[in-house]
Design a protein around this nucleic acid. Structure first.
Lengths: 148, 148
DNA sequence: TGTAATCCTTCCAATCATGGGAAGGTCAAG
DNA sequence: CTTGACCTTCCCATGATTGGAAGGATTACA
């Protein structure tokens, strides 16, 4: 199987397959005499594992760990779970940040009549010296992303 | 005011101030004879506007639009509101994507006992050929993160 | 006055995962 | 034997930001 077929079968683009090989996430494949990379069904299976991990937002570094745990039949499921739950925490933090932004912006936009007149509370708020009003329901004290 | 003081006063790093100047987001400043950039309070005000916009997740491109609307006393508030609400949509889409990932992962992790034995549903699922089970629709919903 | 510390300048590089494209070699079908 | 679809490597771009090196300017202090 050439790289294009492996790409189609796995859902990982040929570009990314070469990239993953270059950074050592997947081993170097066999080559034909002409230098074409050759892939087996097993390789495609690994690529699909990688793609599914990416779909869940894991970084390439974490995927390297997951792949090595996957290959290790002596692994402790605890190690996998730790990686997964650490990632969930990261996702949840990002979600909270984005929710805070969206919520603040929605409230600013609500107070802007959005017509042809120039008066605009959104701009006023951006130009203000006061801290941005945060409108999350629960926890509002995570400070925006700036570093004070 | 030198760039370092402007950075401290605005919350935008000196590096980023130079970058914003290089891409044209802010105009080129006056320089001392030695070539040092000189900033006024007004410049700092603009930089703070930019930082607050960044804190809300606006891209530099959008910020350029916001700054130019801010400067334009003839603007229509509609134009500002459109930018803001478009951005809210983008934020909401990202939030949903991340929620889906987190939700799926939490469910996978729940079924992993996380001990020293090798059996692990997380890896099994990543290695499976079936579509990843998404848990947003059934039980997790969008509000599941509210408490987390 | 000397000197050391702290600023400032520009330029280059790296991040992270991905795509685009050029230049050139290979393969299969007509 | 040509054409078109594939493959190869290499370089570049993204977005926002940080890091650092090399070198000049300013400031502080003895």
């Amino acid at each position: 199987m050439n790289i294009g077929q492996a790409a189609t079968a796995s859902g990982v683009s040929a570009k990314m397959i070469r990239y993953y090989e270059s950074i050592g996430l997947i081993p170097k494949t066999l080559r034909t005499e002409a230098g074409y990379r050759v892939y087996s069904d097993h390789d495609v299976h690994t690529l699909r594992f990688i793609r599914r991990s990416r779909d869940l937002g894991f970084s390439v570094e974490q995927i390297a760990d997951l792949v090595s745990l996957w290959r290790d039949r002596e692994r402790a499921s605890k190690d996998v779970k730790t990686i997964a739950l650490d990632h969930v925490s990261v996702l949840e933090r990002k979600i909270r940040e984005l929710q805070e932004m969206a919520s603040t912006l929605r409230h600013l936009a609500e107070n802007c009549c959005g017509d042809s007149r120039p008066h605009c509370p959104i701009l006023e708020e951006l130009a203000s010296d006061e801290p941005l009003p945060v409108h999350t329901k629960t926890d509002a004290k995570f400070g925006a992303l700036g570093k004070a």
